[in-house]
């Protein structure tokens, strides 16, 4: 089994509501020989408030994180949170400009000469690497039989999308999660809202918009006939989950789980170990669909 060390940026949400995303990510990576290294004293990535009203703060936060990654000797940082990924990537693109780099160096108090070499990737991109996805397949203990999944990427796992990056997934019809979960035997459905927005951080400061967006996503996911929605972002997860919780008495319920929890189950971890017992919507009515690989 190949071992690979990658810098890991969990972000604030994965220490809170999205803890099961963190736990299952660590289990999956551990099993297939990826050593996740958390940069010491990482700080908030800046999404959404810092970039919304204080750009200098945002770039300082991003630059310091990228510096900590570089200092730890890594040239790649992966973030499971789509907002962290997107905002760190935005900062890294901005820091390609030597003038900006110099200003940021002064604020961070370190020489940021090398930060432009750090590449920022979402966890989906890391796990989609050919040798890594092969390793997942080799370690599979169980497969999903007849489990219908829709993959919900949300807006920021795939944006900003650089045309110049040949490895980047499509932002309109992304495939990385479909392929990862398809390889576990699941029936991955095509649907319309793969990379639409869930309303993001607005859920905390005026939920109207988040309700409009999540209702649409849930309606389309249910219409596709899916048993479960797989997500790759803590904000998508909490927005969908909270909306379902509020509609419990009225609407049809559908489990919303992190894609790493499904990978974890296939790799032999239990429902409890991957944190599916912590979800608000009963997440394993389809347990019988897990069969020995």
């Amino acid at each position: 089994m190949a071992t690979k060390t990658v810098s890991y940026f969990p972000g604030c949400s994965l220490h809170g509501l999205a803890k099961p995303f963190d736990t299952s990510t660590r289990l999956v990576c551990g099993k297939i020989g990826i050593n996740l290294q958390e940069p010491n004293d990482w700080n908030c990535c800046g999404a959404t408030s810092a970039h919304s009203i204080d750009h200098s703060l945002n770039l300082t936060l991003g630059a310091r994180n990228l510096y900590l990654v570089e200092k730890s000797g890594s040239n790649t940082v992966t973030a499971p949170c789509a907002a962290c990924f997107s905002n760190l990537k935005r900062s890294s693109i901005e820091l390609q400009d030597p003038k900006k780099r110099q200003l940021a160096s002064q604020l961070v108090g370190e020489n940021l000469k090398e930060v432009e070499k750090v590449s920022v990737i979402h966890l989906l991109e890391l796990l989609s690497d050919h040798s890594i996805s092969k390793s997942i397949k080799q370690n599979m203990k169980y497969r999903f039989t007849d489990l219908k999944i829709v993959c919900y990427y949300g807006c920021l796992t795939v944006r900003p999308n650089e045309e110049s990056d040949p490895e980047a997934d499509s932002s309109e019809n992304p495939q990385s999660m479909d392929k990862l979960l398809g390889a576990l035997g699941a029936d991955v459905r095509d649907w319309s809202h793969k990379s639409e927005c869930c309303g993001g951080s607005h859920s905390l400061c005026g939920p109207d918009l988040a309700n409009i967006r999540t209702d649409e996503v849930l309606r389309q996911a249910i219409a596709s006939g899916a048993d479960v929605i797989a997500v790759a972002c803590p904000l998508c997860h909490s927005n969908l989950e909270f909306r379902l919780h509020a509609l419990q008495a009225k609407g049809k319920q559908i489990p919303v789980v992190f894609f790493t929890q499904l990978l974890g189950l296939a790799l032999g971890y239990t429902v409890k170990e991957v944190g599916l017992n912590k979800m608000l919507v009963n997440s394993f009515p389809w347990r019988e669909k897990l069969t020995l690989a």
Binding site: T48, S52, S171
Partner: peptide, 11 residues
């Protein structure tokens, strides 16, 4: 203030 920074427009 209703913009949620989703990047879909610029994409």
């Amino acid at each position: 203030w209703m913009c949620v920074s989703c990047h879909i427009c610029e994409d």
